[in-house]
Nucleic acid binder design. Structure first.
Length: 271
DNA sequence: AAATAATCCTGCGGGC
DNA sequence: TGCCCGCAGGATTATT
């Protein structure tokens, strides 16, 4: 499910249930995730209080007095809040058990992960080299323009590189480039600073809108099934191959880039 | 049956 | 030569 807005929505969805609460225990039914779930995770988290609950890129950080758990949803992961007596269903791999609720991690494809570190989590090897948060002031025109100089990779793959900027996944990469009027194939190093100004604004807009949309679904998180009711924002090109561009009517095109589908309007995205 | 909302790893080629 | 970097492609997986 997750690009950054979905992770942010998930974090907000569990925040009030988990933050400052004591973790009674952790039940791991499947350790074979993107990386093996460390054997020590149950002992390290059990009895601890979830003192901080934050996000870095697409990682959710659960901080305790002893260390930090790093949770990543991968491509198909989700969290939901269930009652203590709810029986686990298919692909419900991990439970974080609280006094009167369970945070339940479901991930069919098991590309997600749950890791543990006792050091500064931001210095963990998987997080240390991450680029700036797209909604922060560190992510600005000058930064992205400078980072792009000399780069021959396509602009779409460039903004999907988490060392450049975190949180821009396959859907919002296509959407952002459409809004900025940039052809996804264009070499990152050949775009003008003016164009990067549009792109940075587009990325911030698209992600902020998506988070806002996710926010409107938060009540579903505590609803009957405790699942996050992700709503996609109204997408203008993604998954719309052959349909008319909303702006000019030209059929939206799809092609493969870095083994991922890219969608764009050949008329609106000529730069 | 090919596609999928993520991302790390491997190997290659070029520059210094 | 050897090292570092950028880049392309592979691999992981269950479901529709």
């Amino acid at each position: 499910m997750p690009e950054l807005p979905e992770v942010e929505t998930t974090l907000r969805g569990i925040y009030h249930t988990l933050h400052s609460q004591k973790i009674k225990r952790v039940d791991v039914r499947e350790r074979r995730m993107r990386w093996p779930v460390p054997d020590e995770i149950e002992a390290r988290l059990s009895g601890q209080t979830a003192a901080s609950l934050t996000r870095r890129g697409k990682y959710i950080l659960i901080g305790t007095d002893n260390g930090t758990a790093l949770l990543h949803l991968g491509m198909s992961g989700s969290l939901r809040i269930v009652d203590p007596d709810a029986p686990p269903e298919k692909h419900d791999h991990i439970d974080i058990v609280l006094a009167d609720k369970i945070i339940r991690f479901n991930d069919p494809r098991r590309f997600g992960s749950l890791l543990w570190t006792e050091n500064d989590p931001l210095q963990h090897e998987l997080l240390a080299k991450l680029g700036p948060e797209p909604l922060s002031d560190d992510f600005n025109t000058s930064y992205l323009f400078n980072a792009s100089r000399g780069r021959n990779v396509s602009i779409k793959q460039f903004i999907m590189n988490s060392e450049v900027v975190v949180g821009v996944g396959n859907i919002y990469a296509s959407e952002s480039l459409f809004r900025a009027g940039i052809n996804p194939k264009k070499a990152a190093g050949k775009l003008s600073k003016a164009r990067y100004e549009k792109l940075v604004a587009a990325i911030k807009e698209v992600l902020a809108e998506a988070i806002q949309q996710g926010g409107t679904t938060l009540r579903d998180f505590h609803g009957a099934d405790g699942k996050p009711g992700y709503f996609r924002i109204k997408l203008k090109v993604y998954d719309r191959a052959g349909e008319p561009c909303e702006v000019c009517g030209t059929p939206v095109r799809q092609f493969v880039q870095g083994q991922r589908a890219t969608y764009y309007c050949p008329a609106c995205q000529r730069v």
